[in-house]
């Protein structure tokens, strides 16, 4: 009898650990989706975009307008179809109008950081003015839950998981196997060399910004279904993406992917074992120790 009792406890504990692992995987897929665009911009253009989190919410708000106000038919498929070109144009113009003119300065990297910080301040408060301070919600792309014994998954989480990983793998493939992808990589690795062989560097920079804006906006549409759209949340999303990018190595997409899952898992286990309020402290310690050993992050090139 006594033996039975212990084994039941052990099984419960096992279930709990499996649950925490699932929570970590969910975190990880969310983070991967958040961070991949940021690492791309930095890798290719060496510009650091602090307004990144605000573009995340831009995607969410675009979808909200299309569903709530325009009443677009065709579900999320038509929404993605409608929003992607908007985000692309916004990202392209952003680079051309606001970032490119700064490149002529010696300390342009710092100036871009300052400029994009201002842009984030502008955009976040614009959202408050236009949409109000209250959070908005999007309907889930897929309703319902999947039950496997004791374990329950929402279809939304499953969708996020597969779209996140699938999207990033597809993106990596495009980067390695298409003309434009290779041009982007060439610029990232050697901007001068790329120019000599006739790749229009300026246009690649702008295109990279545009692609990254599309990716983060896409992430925004998807994740807002789970976490809702809050006008001032851009900063928190930015910081999360920043930590993941830095931890994985800025510019390394694969590094970002690993980092997202490591951090997601760590947060789940720290929250479970020590308490949710220790998440941020643990994250910082992890980041610091990693950077002391590897200043360029997990997979970054020094």
């Amino acid at each position: 009898m006594h033996f039975m009792h212990i084994s039941e406890d052990t099984i419960l504990l096992l279930y709990e650990i499996v649950d925490v692992i699932i929570s970590g995987l969910t975190n990880g897929s969310v983070y991967a989706l958040m961070a991949v665009g940021l690492t791309l911009i930095y890798g290719v253009t060496k510009a650091f975009n602090f307004a990144y989190g605000s573009f995340f919410n831009l995607g969410g708000y675009c979808a909200w307008i299309l569903i709530g106000i325009v009443g677009l038919a065709g579900g999320y498929f038509s929404i993605f179809l409608a929003v992607v070109p908007v985000l692309f144009v916004v990202g392209y113009l952003l680079e051309k109008v606001l970032v490119a003119p700064l490149r002529k300065y010696e300390d342009w990297e710092n100036k871009v950081m300052m400029m994009t910080l201002g842009l984030a301040l502008f955009m976040d408060n614009l959202y408050v003015v236009v949409f109000g301070g209250r959070v908005k919600s999007l309907p889930p792309i897929l309703e319902g839950t999947l039950e496997i014994g004791q374990l329950v998954f929402t279809y939304l989480d499953i969708t996020i998981f597969f779209l996140s990983i699938g999207g990033i793998l597809l993106f990596g493939w495009l980067l390695n196997n298409t003309r434009i992808g290779m041009a982007v990589k060439a610029v990232a690795q050697n901007p001068e060399g790329a120019r000599i062989v006739g790749i229009p560097k300026e246009r690649i920079f702008a295109a990279t910004f545009a692609i990254s804006t599309v990716m983060v906006g896409f992430g925004g549409i998807l994740l807002s279904q789970k976490y809702f759209i809050s006008p001032m949340s851009g900063g928190a999303i930015m910081v999360k993406s920043w930590v993941i990018t830095a931890f994985g190595g800025m510019g390394s997409i694969r590094g970002g992917l690993y980092a997202a899952f490591i951090i997601g898992m760590m947060e789940a286990f720290v929250g479970w074992g020590f308490g949710m309020s220790y998440g941020m402290i643990a994250l910082f310690i992890l980041l610091l120790t990693t950077l002391v050993v590897r200043p360029q992050g997990l997979m970054g090139k020094s």
Binding site: L98, P101, L102, K111, M114, M115, L117, G118, L119, A120, L121, F122, M123, D124, N125, L126, V128, V129
Partner: peptide, 14 residues
């Protein structure tokens, strides 16, 4: 106000 301050930063940097 905060929106204008943000826009001001962008304009000033440029």
């Amino acid at each position: 106000r905060a929106m204008v301050m943000g826009a001001l930063v962008v304009i000033l940097v440029l």
